[in-house]
Simulated scan of single mutants.
Amino acid sequence: MAITKQFLKSKPVCKVTFTVPAEGANEVKVVGNFNEWNTEATALKKLKNGTFKGTVNLEKDKSYEFRYLVDGQWKNEDQADAFAWNDYAADENSVINL
Rank of each mutant, 00 (worst) to 15 (best):
K11W: 13
L47H: 02
V70R: 01
W74H: 02
K29Y: 15
T17V: 09
N33T: 01
N97K: 11
V16M: 03
K62Y: 07
L69P: 00
D61N: 13
L44P: 06
L69Q: 09
V30E: 02
G72W: 07
N26I: 06
G50R: 01
V16A: 05
E36G: 12
A22K: 06
T42Y: 13
A41G: 06
N26Q: 15
S10T: 10
A22Q: 08
V16L: 11
L98H: 02
K53S: 13
P21W: 08
K15R: 05
V13N: 07
E59L: 02
F52Q: 03
N49P: 06
P21N: 07
A84N: 14
S10R: 08
V56K: 04
E65D: 12
F52H: 08
K46V: 04
G24W: 01
L8M: 00
V70Q: 08
Q73V: 15
K29D: 07
E77A: 13
K62F: 12
N33P: 02
Y68V: 05
L69N: 05
L44A: 02
V31I: 15
P12Q: 10
V70A: 07
K9G: 12
G54W: 10
E23G: 15
K46P: 01
F66H: 14
M1E: 09
I3F: 06
Q6D: 10
V13T: 11
D91T: 15
K11V: 00
Q79H: 15
A80S: 13
K45Q: 12
A84D: 11
G50T: 00
F7I: 04
G72V: 08
S94G: 08
V30R: 06
A41K: 04
G24V: 06
K53D: 02
A22N: 04
G54V: 05
F66D: 08
T17F: 00
E40D: 15
Q79N: 15
I96D: 04
K62L: 12
E40T: 14
K9D: 09
G54H: 00
V95G: 03
G50W: 10
R67K: 15
D91H: 13
V28T: 01
F18G: 01
V28M: 03
F83V: 14
V13S: 12
N38P: 07
D91K: 15
V16N: 05
A22H: 04
L98E: 07
A82R: 05
K60S: 04
L58V: 03
C14R: 10
F66V: 13
Q6E: 13
T4A: 11
L8E: 03
T17G: 06
G72E: 10
D78Q: 12
Q79W: 05
A2N: 12
A43I: 03
G32T: 00
F7E: 10
A84L: 12
K60F: 14
L69M: 15
L8Y: 09
K53A: 03
A2P: 00
V56C: 06
T42I: 11
F18Y: 07
A80E: 03
F34G: 06
N93L: 12
G24R: 00
D78F: 10
R67L: 14
T19R: 02
F52K: 02
T51S: 09
E65W: 07
Y68Q: 12
I96Q: 06
K62I: 01
